[in-house]
Design a protein around this nucleic acid. Structure first.
Length: 207
DNA sequence: ACATTAAGTGATT
DNA sequence: AATCACTTAATGT
């Protein structure tokens, strides 16, 4: 399903420019568009499909940052281009994807004469920033010990008492983790005198 | 006493 | 933090 450039509410003259200077590129699912260290010579505008943007650590382990979909462009590319720095992320096609590559040289010029381009770039930054915050949140939330403690307090507060009636397995299911992890972290909380564990029941030690 | 279910543990990735 | 393989403890019949 191809989206054309017209649907991205650019002014007609800009659409013309993009068509003249942009290069259409199609990516198979799983194809890599960008990898860390690659020089960035053009910025992509996604027409259809989606790109998965990831960060990579030294060992090559990847963490998901955000998706780019129809009408998006890559904020990283914009900064890399203007600062003339290599890419620090990896971009892989999540689906079969079509995009237009716009050469760097045009960016400044378009910024100054096309209001819709300025808006486009500005929005790209704003949306990517939001996505990034979301990614940070979910990573921060993945500290299971905190999540369990929050859940217990919430459950206890929901009633009036200091007991939470649940098995480790049930808690594990709620937190999308394994029973063993829950058991161990509860043990840790118990060691800190925050709770006492019983069968089918957890006692919150609130003073 | 026996079976069932919950909880605890070590090792491995 | 997840998974596996097992052990041990608590409870129900």
């Amino acid at each position: 399903m191809t989206t054309n450039i017209q649907s991205l509410h650019f002014e007609p003259k800009l659409v013309e420019e993009i068509e003249k200077v942009g290069v259409l590129k199609k990516l198979e699912m799983g194809a890599e568009l960008m990898r860390p260290g690659m020089p960035v010579r053009s910025i992509p505008i996604i027409l259809s499909g989606s790109l998965r943007i990831m960060r990579q650590d030294e060992g090559g382990k990847e963490t998901f940052l955000y998706f780019l979909t129809k009408g998006d462009t890559c904020a990283m590319s914009l900064t890399c281009c203007t600062a003339n720095r290599p890419s620090s992320v990896r971009a892989v096609a999540e689906d079969p994807t079509e995009l237009i590559l716009v050469p760097v040289e045009k960016l400044d010029y378009w910024m100054s004469i096309f209001p819709s381009w300025k808006t486009f770039v500005f929005q790209a930054y704003q949306r990517r920033f939001e996505d990034l915050l979301e990614a940070v949140d979910s990573l921060a939330f993945q500290k299971m010990d905190e999540r369990i403690w929050r859940l217990l307090k919430k459950k206890a507060a929901l009633q009036e008492k200091r007991y939470v009636y649940a098995t480790h397995q049930e808690l594990a299911d709620e937190l999308n983790t394994s029973r063993e992890v829950v058991t161990r972290l509860l043990k840790k909380l118990e060691g800190m005198d925050k709770i006492k564990t019983h069968r089918n029941r957890i006692e919150l030690m609130l003073k």
